[in-house]
Design a protein around this nucleic acid. Structure first.
Lengths: 208, 208
DNA sequence: GTCTATATACCGATAGAC
DNA sequence: GTCTATCGGTATATAGAC
């Protein structure tokens, strides 16, 4: 049996397998991008977090752009899988949204990643611009369909426009993330409870 | 009468006065920071936008940090002046907020500046972190006082918590800015109307 | 798969002439 | 007040040894 890459040793004790090493790098990149954004991050710092040198990193991801794309794809996969699980268990899209926000309340780096990148990426020249354009388009459309269904079921409060509610719920989630992150740094009172505030908004729109 | 700096000529035709030149640099910095954030911006690029070299810029603002501070102070001054004007004319804080959002709908660079910097600045090491911490603290407190007054006047819908409404209105403004900026790049339908969506939220909370 | 060494470019900031 | 020239540092990316 020929030796595999995973069996080769180096000063870290042993090589991680290709897949595991890529995951380590992606995790390190999430932390770094979340703290200083895409432009502020350096491949050397990310590589150091992952325990390798920056040419070592570039063996797995040929450019900084490619690494960012891998980070975003990874996050999409994780969240979409969880949402699909919720859907399989019969939960509505809006219920799944609240659960997503609850989970995010325990994963600061992920929230910081989205806050830092979504702000940077409003500029069309940012390498994540297309990703976030698609992300918002999808999020608002899914929320819109959920509110349409609520209205058809007669459970939407009178006078509430589903299209408005969809934009508002997505906007509220984004804005609450920023306030939550700020509240973690501040020493004034309890941190913002994103899921509770989101739930309060949804309840203010529905009849039950 | 001794000559003033404003009277000296250079290849641009004439020197701007100290004050005017500082304003030109601040305007250039707003554009650059808004497009690539603080970390992504370079003093050379900002200086080029303002029509000078980067050591010329550093004569007016000794460090990149100092330039950022000047940009934020300038924005604060402009917005607070407009809010004070509204207050002097008898408008409520929430009405002034809607008018602020209406004005922002015609000043894309300003909105992009806040979106890019507020995302970056959630990290405590960012040079604008303290500014945004204070900004959010103040915004939420002012909104809270406005909703408290509405409740005392019996004009707040039953069951609406003023503290929640304050966090939500600030969050909604932030989130709508990101969606508005994204909608300007997209070719699908009309752009998001931030002021209209904000007004709809406020109306959903009040009785009149 | 990871390393050292290096190429090339840009960064923020300073020195000193005009 | 603005310039040219430059310093020391870091960036992304590549070459080539192991």
């Amino acid at each position: 049996m020929p030796h595999t890459p995973a069996a080769v040793s180096n000063r870290r004790g042993s090589y991680a397998s290709g897949r595991a090493r890529r995951d380590e790098i992606v995790q390190a990149a999430i932390v770094e991008f979340s703290e200083v954004g895409y432009y502020g991050a350096s491949l050397r710092q990310i590589a150091a977090r992952a325990g390798i040198t920056h040419p070592g990193l570039l063996h797995h991801f040929p450019t900084k752009d490619a690494l960012l794309a891998a980070v975003l794809a990874h996050r999409d996969a994780v969240d979409l899988e969880a949402m699909a699980e919720d859907k399989a268990q019969g939960r509505s899209y809006l219920e799944a949204l609240v659960r997503l926000v609850e989970r995010n309340g325990k994963r600061r780096a992920i929230v910081e990643l989205y806050a830092a990148l979504s702000g940077e990426a409003t500029s069309p020249r940012h390498p994540a611009h297309a990703f976030f354009a698609g992300h918002y388009e999808l999020s608002v459309r899914m929320a819109r369909e959920a509110f349409d269904k609520l209205r058809d079921d007669g459970r939407l409060r009178q006078g509430v426009d589903p299209a408005w509610a969809a934009r508002a719920v997505v906007a509220l989630m984004d804005g609450l993330q920023i306030q939550w992150l700020q509240s973690l740094e501040s020493d004034t009172g309890a941190p913002v409870d994103m899921a509770r505030d989101l739930r309060a908004f949804l309840e203010s729109l529905t009849l039950d």
